[in-house]
């Protein structure tokens, strides 16, 4: 009986620490969820004279995938993004983050280009506005121009099937 309280506290602590182990500290919840997509006006990778802004996308559900040719996990993710784009649910826009346009084009040529368009964020300022800190990142923006979902790190087959597609279908529905 004397040990009941310390033992109880110990078990509680082990429980809490155990729960902590299941969380990924790299996944910081974005404060941007349900906030308007941050403003940008950036050149399109393959047509630099053309500028794309978040306003152009208003009224439709769209996906923004942050990628770069120097980003190794973007290669791993590429097949999944391609698979998503092929379903033709929504436009998939690439944010080419802190990359050399020539490297970026070569990368797309090598692996295939799933994006409707990629926009060029040379110095990463738009990335900062979108709270990007771990490329690749994937955002889903609703018809109202609000960010509905953010995925940090490469989208996997599981997260595509369990989160991204259902979220898109719900927004389109």
């Amino acid at each position: 009986m004397r040990f009941a309280i310390p033992l109880g506290l110990f078990v509680l602590m082990v429980g809490l620490l155990g729960f902590g182990l299941t969380l990924d500290p790299k996944k910081v919840p974005s404060p941007l969820i349900d906030k308007p997509a941050p403003a940008f006006s950036l050149s399109v990778l393959h047509q630099p004279e053309l500028k794309l802004s978040q306003k152009d996308m208003l009224g439709q559900v769209w996906v923004m995938n942050v990628w770069a040719s120097w980003c190794v996990s973007c290669r791993a993710e590429h097949a999944i993004i391609t698979q998503l784009a092929k379903q033709n649910l929504t436009p998939v826009i690439g944010l080419n983050y802190k990359d050399q346009p020539n490297d970026a084009k070569a990368w797309l040529q090598q692996f295939g280009n799933p994006y409707l368009a990629s926009i060029v964020d040379l110095d990463g300022r738009v990335g900062i506005d979108w709270g990007v800190y771990g490329v690749p990142e994937t955002f889903i923006i609703g018809r109202d121009g609000l960010i509905k979902y953010k995925h940090i790190g490469p989208v996997t087959q599981e997260s595509l099937d369990a989160e991204v597609i259902p979220m898109l279908k719900q927004l389109l529905g």
Partner: peptide, 8 residues
């Protein structure tokens, strides 16, 4: 910074 990256 907090508006973009959160309290973390």
């Amino acid at each position: 910074m907090v508006a973009r990256y959160g309290d973390f």
